[in-house]
Design a protein around this nucleic acid. Structure first.
Length: 593
RNA sequence: GGUCCCAUAGCUCAACCGGAUAGAGCAACUGCCUUCUAAGCAGUAGGUUGCAGGUUCGAGUCCUGCUGGGAUCACCA
């Protein structure tokens, strides 16, 4: 039963009967009634006032009377200004609850028969993951889970940037200064070790530039002429030729990085169905250049470079192939788009990439449209804002980058500290306690990063950003743990969670059923808007509503058995939905905390 | 300079297709643990939604201009 749709239908009928106007039921705006008014659903009457030449209050009253008179779900109404507020009978709330209570798959939307690919993470193999990557990974994982629950078949992919000049820089620095150290001999995690040499390169390179500048060279020229850069470029050429020594070094260092990333991904709790490596895909896309030239989408300049003119679309002219015939960034993205569609024929393809690449994706998608790719209309750039620090933007050169591994470890420590302080781990084994710290740490961190609208840039203060109280992951986790505790006790008392046919409801019980009933729609909305933030807000809303119920309504002290069993059932349903909603954010809901 | 994004309470964030007196959390203050987990609940205080116009029954939301911040405009990725 979908109350929302039912009421829309009834309102449409009422408008027809009472005022003889035809409105499509789906077009009727129904919003949740504000807390300070009586009712659950509100219909705004203003839009019809002009058309009907009647006051909104009069319209609302007529509609309200009609809805109550039909003896349906609407038990009462009130009209405030032009707002028609509708109350729902307890009978209907209980029927609604019965459909939720018995349903293991509650929230899972019907199969849409469509495939979606979600690309996220997509790291460079020359440095470890940082705070910005955390937002990316959590977003990507979450939106993939949301789309799954929304009825799509989802493939999660990761495009690893494991080649190119920047990789050669760390390889070169390692060759020069590495003394053959390895993650094992240095006790440094593989990705951090490689990152260290990327920094080493930059230092030495800068030193060379200053030297050249002191020797009288212009800075710009020095940046291009520095021997280290020349060496790195030479190394890239060797790599492309397949020089065994270069490839060997590359493979060794990459394997360190992959091992390091795997560890970090595991801690983050994210995973992928398919990984693309740029070393395999960087030559793709050249045939598309030919195709585009034939179709007249691209044009060739006298120097042999290939371009697309997007000025008619409000963009610029864009290079798609260099004059020497080699690829640029977008060339391989064109090829990769086709490869993805071939591997997984999808209706939608989501790229989780920061908003500094908005322009790139506009161009990419536009080109795919012009080339007539059938999947082009389903391409979507999930563009998210940067994560700023109190000191401003993260800058690797200034050492202000917040490392992902470090941050997760700090969160773990904080969780441990707080949990011990609160004396919450009596009866936990060492292992259980550790697992809980991790669950809480990741819950806090993921919730913090996901509750904000992805499009917006956000601020992260390492000292104080991640709290464990109020609108936080642990608050929601806490409510889940409390319910699990109640359910354990209910089982001991041999109480059967039951959805009763007829009892009087407490107002906080109605609130809970109402909130529970919103879940499927929220999953749908979050998928359509590509916004885990909607799920985060929902989870908080549900937990908060439960918390209120918990403090206002007794469960085991209730004498009426029907009510007692109902409250257990209601609690159980809330725990289930909290667990599912948090699962959509990649957050685990603990049994105890 | 062109294009795009952002600006809401002291701080971090909400506000669904334009709807009621703009909501939460943190920080501050006041109550509430002999009862199902106080990582909690209830309450107080905190706002000219950057500024100026416009559109309309109604604007944080749409339009124009301005101010401030950011991104991007490489034969880099």
């Amino acid at each position: 039963m979908n109350l929302n749709e039912y009421i829309q239908g009834a309102l449409a009928a009422a408008l027809q009967q009472e005022f003889a106007i035809e409105v499509a039921a789906a077009d009727l705006v129904l919003q949740p009634t504000k807390k300070e008014f009586e009712g659950f659903y509100t219909f705004v009457c203003f839009p019809y006032a002009k058309q009907l030449k009647k006051s909104p209050v009069e319209i609302g009253t007529k509609l309200g009377e009609y809805l109550v008179a039909e003896n349906g779900p609407v038990s009462a109404f009130n009209v405030v200004q032009g707002f028609l507020n509708l109350s729902i009978s307890d009978q209907v709330w209980l029927e609604l609850f019965a459909t939720i209570h018995g349903n293991e798959n509650y929230g899972q939307l019907p199969d849409k028969g469509q495939k979606v690919m979600v690309e996220y993470s997509s790291p460079n193999t020359n440095k470890p993951l940082h705070l910005g990557h955390l937002r990316n990974n959590f977003l990507g994982y979450s939106i993939a889970e949301i789309l799954k629950m929304g009825g799509y078949e989802v493939m999660k992919t990761n495009v690893v940037n494991n080649r190119g000049i920047h990789i050669c820089k760390s390889m070169l620095a390692y060759q020069l200064f590495g003394n053959n150290e390895t993650p094992a001999t240095s006790d440094i995690k593989g990705d951090h070790l490689v990152g260290k040499y990327y920094v080493e390169f930059d230092k030495a390179y800068k030193a060379q530039i200053s030297e050249l500048v002191e020797g009288g060279m212009e800075k710009e020229k020095a940046e291009k002429e520095a021997p280290l850069l020349k060496q790195a470029e030479a190394m890239l050429l060797k790599w492309e030729e397949g020089d065994p020594a270069t490839i060997g070094l590359w493979e060794m260092m990459n394997s360190w990085v992959y091992a390091g990333f795997d560890e970090t991904y595991k801690k983050m709790g994210v995973n992928f169905d398919k990984i693309y490596y740029e070393s395999d895909t960087y030559l793709l896309g050249k045939d598309i250049i030919e195709e585009g030239l034939e179709k007249g989408v691209f044009y060739r300049r006298p120097d042999n470079s290939v371009w697309i003119d997007l000025t008619a679309d409000g963009l610029d002219e864009k290079l798609v192939l260099r004059s020497n015939g080699t690829s640029v960034y977008i060339t391989q993205d064109l090829g990769l788009a086709d490869l993805k569609a071939e591997d997984f024929p999808m209706q939608k393809s989501v790229y989780v990439v920061g908003n500094e690449q908005d322009y790139h994706f506009k161009v990419l998608f536009l080109i795919m449209q012009k080339l007539g790719r059938p999947y082009a209309s389903g391409l979507y750039h999930l563009s998210y804002g940067m994560v700023d620090l109190p000191s401003g933007k993260m800058k690797s050169r200034e050492g202000t980058v917040v490392d992902a591994d470090d941050l997760m470890q700090e969160m773990n420590d904080t969780a441990e500290e707080m949990t011990k302080e609160l004396g919450k781990i009596d009866g936990f084994t060492e292992e259980e306690a550790k697992a809980l710290y991790h669950t809480l740490a990741m819950g806090a961190l993921k919730y913090f990063l996901l509750k904000v609208d992805p499009k917006k840039r956000m601020l992260f203060n390492p000292q104080e950003s991640v709290d464990f109280q109020g609108n936080t992951g642990p608050y929601i986790q806490y409510n889940h743990a409390r319910i699990r505790s109640i359910l354990r006790k209910a089982a001991q008392l041999e109480l059967t969670p039951t959805a009763p046919a007829a009892i009087d409801l407490h107002s906080s019980e109605r609130d809970l059923i109402f909130t529970l009933s919103q879940f499927p729609q929220r999953v749908e909305d979050a998928g359509n808007m590509y916004s885990p933030a909607l799920i985060a807000q929902y989870a908080y809303d549900l937990a908060k509503t439960y918390s209120q119920f918990f403090s206002e309504v007794p469960i085991f002290a209730e004498e009426n058995l029907d009510k007692k069993q109902f409250r257990v059932a209601l609690s159980k349903a809330v725990a289930e939905v909290i667990r599912k909603a948090m699962g959509l954010l990649g957050v685990t809901a603990p049994e105890r905390m």
